[in-house]
Design a binder for these strands. Structure first.
Lengths: 176, 176
DNA sequence: TGTGTCATGTAACTGGTTACATGATTCT
DNA sequence: AGAATCATGTAACCAGTTACATGACACA
């Protein structure tokens, strides 16, 4: 149940319709918590039913503008401050584990491919970093920058790890 | 659909019953791809229905021993070598993003707590590294070691990142 | 007039979790 | 006899995805 808190978070900065929020998801939260249209609309209705948000205005084409309520703010705060154990379940890591089942050369190629893909991801994030005008006084930017740093370090770590793995595979080839 | 491939992977090393596999999941794949009992049994039946595995023996208490088939091996191979884009969706990262909604002191505390938790995770993995007797000649160990290295580097990266974030939060406190 | 964008919703499906349920065998 | 373990399954639920469906409004 994270989408609901992402939505609450966006609404805590400014009210908006489902449609607005979708675009905000795409711009600000795209790399952190992507949302689908269908899921967002259902969740907004649920949140409204539970009183965590409310319709503050209606406009053309059935537009409903939502705002966060006090109950919503309390729930957001509660969730943000509640630590959570996350099992770190990455299908790509499972793939590595199962590389034992293919020929060493193919396994090596798999790492080479991943390395290229992750370098591209890293470049994307670096572009985001460079393109954004960070305002330290704005808490949104402040923590956004920290979240981005996580992404940057994660991708760098991946790239380094893949290089390490390739070296390891090369220097001690498995017995033929 | 990763559990199915994890199961295929385990069966490709040795045949076994659902019950056997469950224990193998807990020991070898616990940190990579945890499985629940209920899911595994349903998946084994599905895999058998599709001919990717087959019952090779039945024993006491309704025990069914499965083995991977050629079709199963082909499917495993296909999946392992198919690269996949993974959106890296971590609820903890979303939490960071939403820290903008709580007081700076509380946000700082959240990082301190995470730092402690991640240091503990790192210690766990280091214990696994030390406790295992790695046999480079065994492909399972070979790639298992590489997967573990990912976990180690990931946790180290997290710890470093949290220290970086704390410094950043301290050196440039937000305007009161 | 017709295309693009604004705007909301529902249905079917997938992968996963929790809880419930049953019973055979082994060991003390 | 009773507890622990072996062994399998089902049902209800949750979060998320893809696809389908509808219609109002704005602008060229």
């Amino acid at each position: 149940m994270s989408l609901r808190h992402a939505a609450l978070g966006l609404l805590s900065r400014a009210p908006g319709s489902g449609y607005d929020l979708l675009r905000r998801f795409d711009t600000t939260l795209a790399h952190v918590w992507p949302a689908t249209q269908s899921q967002l609309y259902t969740e907004l209705n649920r949140l409204a039913a539970e009183g965590l948000i409310e319709v503050v205005a209606t406009g053309a084409r059935g537009r409903k503008e939502y705002a966060i309520t006090d109950a919503g703010r309390a729930e957001l705060r509660r969730w943000v401050l509640t630590p959570e154990e996350v099992p770190l379940r990455d299908p790509r890591l499972l793939r590595v584990f199962l590389l034992a089942d293919v020929e060493p050369e193919r396994a090596r190629e798999a790492f080479v491919d991943r390395l290229a893909a992750d370098r591209a991801h890293l470049a994307d994030l670096e572009a985001v970093l460079a393109a954004t005008d960070w305002d330290e006084a704005d808490p949104g930017d402040r923590y956004g920058r920290i979240a981005l740093e996580f992404g940057l370090r994660f991708r760098r770590m991946e790239v380094e790890w893949e290089r390490w793995a390739l070296e390891r595979l090369d220097e001690a080839p498995p017995p033929a």
